[in-house]
Design a protein around this nucleic acid. Structure first.
Lengths: 228, 228
DNA sequence: TTTTAATCGATATATTTGTATCGATAAAAA
DNA sequence: TTTTTATCGATACAAATATATCGATTAAAA
């Protein structure tokens, strides 16, 4: 090791986002495979299962620091724990949810989040009809209480499942309250200070790709039929 | 125009996926702005609102064929209709949903899908407790009826909101029934024939990016504090 | 009318991401 | 024990995507 290689620089090597987005896929697959009591898995097999390129899989997994064995592949348990650690899915982080409509309720009911290191501990809304209700064991509180509770419970993650008109205002409340990261299910782009993390769930983006690709496919099929 | 420039080739210029994923964002913004009775918008303003690069916005919008006016920008209505047309959000496409759990129910209750050219017309499940129930005005039918109904109603889109264990089997039923495009909310990777479109909603991917980025941020902040 | 300045859109460059090549390694077969 | 072969991982190359530059255009100001 060179003498002037600082450990700060070592931390700075950011993980490419496409790679980061493949990590959950790897974890899902590896957990499934572990149940079938396989111990090792090769990059080729992973690539095959997820329809990726095996070189890409190897490059991605290289980031975890887990080293593979020639002719065998990687130790599944090692990979799972390394990947979970990178995503911080190996310990539980509390989150507050704002917007107790249908999507909000669905997320509150989705117990598997614990598997992904997320623990929704409270829900908030403005609507008097919703306040006081209990959804999947979590009481809906008035939005005014948000700030105090963030401070008291030292919560870092806020989830926005409110309609687009309300989303920006809610984001601002979250930022003021000390929330550090926002998971945004509203379709609008949130404007927040540079140091606040925003991750969009992008449902409409995904839907857009689907509807566009399908319509192109159907057009092409019609074009082919007409030519015959 | 050159004589051997076929119109097939013209159709083949695929839209880059990152661009396609930004289109919904543009539409959301433009619709909001239209309400404020602005007629023209510049790429600079769009970039500013969505925190993108103005050159990128211009390049994206160039794909629509809409031409901007120097010093003014683009006609908002023209952009909205061109973008909606590309995404096929200007006419309604029917879809069937499989998996009437909490997420499925949330999607059934999400009336705004009509705005995105999607119309969920029926829901299916295996669970006898769910079959027969009505969710947001849509009756839950037994999965066995899926095939017949796809054929009869000529539905092209299937939505999977079932748990991961069931997802692959459901995908196979969908493909056999003649579904052309699947919107997959399960966390697993679906294996389907090459000509079937699969679009993943990728909730856990998005969550992974969030939890990872947050944990890095917190780590860094602690490191800075310790140095002082 | 002339000048100014904001914007477009074409072309060129840089960055990021993905894919290919190939020697080294070690498990399994001969 | 020796040979074979599947796999890793480093390095090199290719493709896709994002960013920069700059002349042309035209609305609005002078």
């Amino acid at each position: 090791m060179l003498e002037n290689e600082s450990n700060i620089e070592k931390e700075i090597k950011m993980i490419p986002e496409p790679t980061l987005r493949r990590f959950p896929q790897y974890i899902h697959l590896l957990k499934r495979l572990r149940k079938e009591s396989t111990q090792y898995i090769s990059s080729t097999t992973i690539a095959d299962e997820l329809e990726l390129d095996s070189i890409q899989v190897r490059k991605d997994l290289a980031i975890t620091g887990v080293v593979g064995k020639p002719k065998l592949g990687f130790d599944i348990d090692e990979l799972i724990s390394a990947l979970s650690n990178i995503l911080n899915w190996d310990n539980s982080t509390d989150a507050f949810l704002v917007g107790a409509g249908s999507l909000g309720s669905a997320l509150l009911g989705y117990k598997n989040f614990n598997q992904y290191g997320l623990n929704i501990v409270a829900a908030f809304d403005n609507d008097p009809n919703k306040i006081g209700k209990t959804i999947s064991g979590i009481e809906v509180l008035p939005l005014e209480k948000f700030g105090n509770m963030v401070e008291r419970m030292k919560v870092h993650i806020g989830i926005i499942t409110a309609p687009p008109e309300a989303a920006q205002k809610i984001a601002e409340v979250m930022v003021q309250s000390g929330i550090q990261a926002i998971w945004n299910f509203s379709s609008i782009h949130l404007k927040v200070p540079f140091n606040i993390i925003v991750e969009d769930a992008l449902l409409t983006q995904s839907l857009g790709v689907l509807t566009h690709t399908l319509s192109e496919k159907l057009k092409k099929e019609i074009a082919v039929l007409e030519k015959q």
